[in-house]
Each structure stands twice: as C-alpha cells, then as structure tokens.
Design a binder for these strands. Sequence first.
DNA 1: ATATTAAGCGGAGACATCTCCACTTGTCAA
DNA 2: TTGACAAGTGGAGATGTCTCCGCTTAATAT
Lengths: 217, 217
Amino acid sequence: MSTVIEIEIQGRDVHMKETDTSPPRSERRDAAANRQRILDAALRLFEQHGVEAVSMNQIASEAQVGPGTLYRRYKNKSELCLDLIRDSADLLFEEYESYLEQHSMEPAQEQLKYFIRLFIRFREKKSQLLIGVEDSSQTNRPKSRTSSPIYNELNKIFVSLFDKMAASETLNADSDSVFKADMLQMVLSRDFYSIQRDVRGLSPESIFEQICFMFHL
Amino acid sequence: MSTVIEIEIQGRDVHMKETDTSPPRSERRDAAANRQRILDAALRLFEQHGVEAVSMNQIASEAQVGPGTLYRRYKNKSELCLDLIRDSADLLFEEYESYLEQHSMEPAQEQLKYFIRLFIRFREKKSQLLIGVEDSSQTNRPKSRTSSPIYNELNKIFVSLFDKMAASETLNADSDSVFKADMLQMVLSRDFYSIQRDVRGLSPESIFEQICFMFHL
DNA sequence: ATATTAAGCGGAGACATCTCCACTTGTCAA
DNA sequence: TTGACAAGTGGAGATGTCTCCGCTTAATAT
C-alpha cells in the first residue's frame, strides 16, 4: 500500500521540477538517470519500429539496464506508454479546461462535442502510443482497461457532462450517465475506432458525426 | 491459401457426421483421434481451472500431443475456444431462425430485442469460453476481434435488422446501419459487458434495458 | 569520515507462445 | 501387398513476459 503511494509521489516529482529536495524522500539520482535513459530508449525504438514491434527486453538493453530494473518501474509496456504520453494527455485536459472557462455558458452538449473533437485529434496524433496504453499485456488482465488513470479521468469528464445534459432536459427518462460515458469511451477506444477507421474506411470526421448522431448531440 | 480451405472443410466434416468418406480426401483417422483428445483435454482443463489459467502447453501435454500438433490445428487459444463453442453458437443462431419464422411479421425492433436477449443469455451461460474466443493472443493482433467468424455472423444479423428498422421509419436521417451494428457488438463484447456487470454492478436485465434505451428500442 | 539502510540493480530462470523441420505413418493406387 | 507421398507428428529452440533475490550503492544520521 505505502509502496504504491510512494511510486505515485516519485512520478509526480519528476514531472514537476528537476532539483526537488522536498521532505518525502526524493528519487535517487542514479535511479532518475536510469529512468530517463529508459524513456529515451523507448521513445527512440517506438518511433523507429512502432510500439507493437518493440519488446521490453529490447528497451531494457537499449537503455542499458537489466530487465528487472525496467519492470521495477513499469509493470508492462502499457504503463511505459502511459508515462510517455502523460504530458500530452495533461495538455489535452488543460486545453479543455481553458475552453471551458471561456465557454462556460454554452450548453453541455456543445462542450461535449468540443471535447470529443479534441479527443479524436489526440487519438490521431498519438495513435501509436495510445494503442500501446490500451492493450495491457496478458498477465495482469483482470481489470485491464478500466483501471487506467486516463480512463478514469476521461470517465469523470464524460459523466459530469452527461449529468449536466440530463439536468437541463425537461423530460428525461432513465438514462444512466455512467453507462453512457462508458459507452462513449468504448466508441473512442482503439478497438472500435480502429475498426471504423481502417476496416470500415471512415474518416475521423465521419466517425465524429456518427458518434454525435448516436448520442443525440 | 488452399491450406485454409482444406482445414475449413475438415472442420465441417467433423461436425456433420462420423463416418464420412466423401471425395475431398477425408481427415486421417489418427488425426481425428488426436483432435478429439485435444478437445476433451481442453474442456476438462478449462472447467477445472478457468480458461485464462490454462496454457496451450498444458492442453498439449494433457492431450498427449506435442505443442506443434496442437498449434497445427489451432493458431491460438482463441481458435480452440471457438471450436469448443461452435455447437452452442449454432444452436443460438438456430433458435433465432426458428423464432423469426414464427414472428416474421413483428417489427424489426422487437426481433432485435429478442435477439439481444438471446445473446445476453448466451454470454452468461458461456462466459468463460466466450471470453477465450474474444481475446486473441498477441502475435496475430493486426485484425483480431473483427475477423472472427462469429463476429461476422452476428454483424450480418444486426446490420440487416437495423436496415429493416431504418426502412420502416418514415423520417430517417443519416444513420449508418454498419456503424450501429458495430457499436451494438461493442456493447455486447466482453470488454464492455464485463465492466457493466462486474465493475458497475449492473444485472444482465439492467444492461439489456440500458442498451435498448441507448439504441431507441 | 563512516556506518547504516533501504532503494535500486541486474540477470538467471520459470513459464508462455509459436515456428520449424526432420521424421513417422495412414491412405490410396497400382 | 506394397511403395509413394502427403498428411500428420513432436519437440527443440527462438523470442517474449515477468519474478525473484542476492548484491551494490546513494543518501542520511552519527
């Protein structure tokens, strides 16, 4: 339990500043260096060969650390991708925040449409890494997708938007916002999105329109 | 290419009769015996330890064949599960056919609802094996889910039903039946269904109702 | 400076998937 | 029967994921 919390804290430290000698026992300097080398190596290999084609072993040896060291930080490739995409994801949320501040009076429907558009752009730009995040490797299957922090952040946003929409509608039936949100995320997930894009041949714009239609937006 | 076709034919032979000495060069007797032993072993192990916990190696050695022999027939565990579930799936489709014959005049909407109910029952009864079918192991990822024969059979049914519904509606907008069908299948897939059932705590009935609501049924 | 100590390291190895290919064995035609 | 041959076999091994655990070492207290 405490372990999990500490790792969480370390992760945030790295994202905040460089020289941070605050009370909660900072990350060892050599460990930080290794972490950076891992991230660099992973990014390089991913760009060169594609996320799917690169193995954890390759990353480890490219970063000149043992496999154990790599797995110590990242339970699997999915978590590694998550770390690599974290900054972009934060940017996505920030962009949405700043939009919200300037369009706080717009109907929730429009806000939702804006966010969906934003997310689809994100998906297109970071497709490779996002796919990496989404398929958790076999061993820790049990919870998988739903447990990803990004999934939950997104879910919170969608639920609150659907709630707002339900509240503003005069006659609304038994629509469950959580169900709707999960469904929307399913539709925006790799599994569905890739089928529509690559198998069915839809453009991102068409997909957006179909989604809006299905969710009455 | 020809290989694929022949395997297909052999598969059907086994499902049709026992002693079938028809022209297209039947399956060797010893091979058939092995196949049966594999199926038996797999079913036994799956029931005892759960699908996810059983490895292809275990199945092979339990069936007293080499790993190569096992993989010769089934590219992965997913295909093996498919073979084990095939009969039940056929039954599902047959049950639907016979329903259709007796309710051919009902609105497509009702027919669709009936089929969804049928499928949810199927899901509940065969959850273990169905999950096994749905997650294709890593190596042949590219196409995965969409390419499963069962996925396509289901898709055909859903598309035709949505088409029928669209036709009977006087004012219908740009609703794409294929998109809807894919979406419905997504919602009935392991990924989504399990979340709703196990994480969100919904009962099969609630899930059914939510689905109907979301698809205007 | 030095000792203490837990974070961090790395690689051996358990176990999984899947391929390859030299060998065996039913089957069929002669 | 028997020989030819394709269908079928099995297991070694390539490659991958992930764990375990004894050793190393940076950070802190003395």
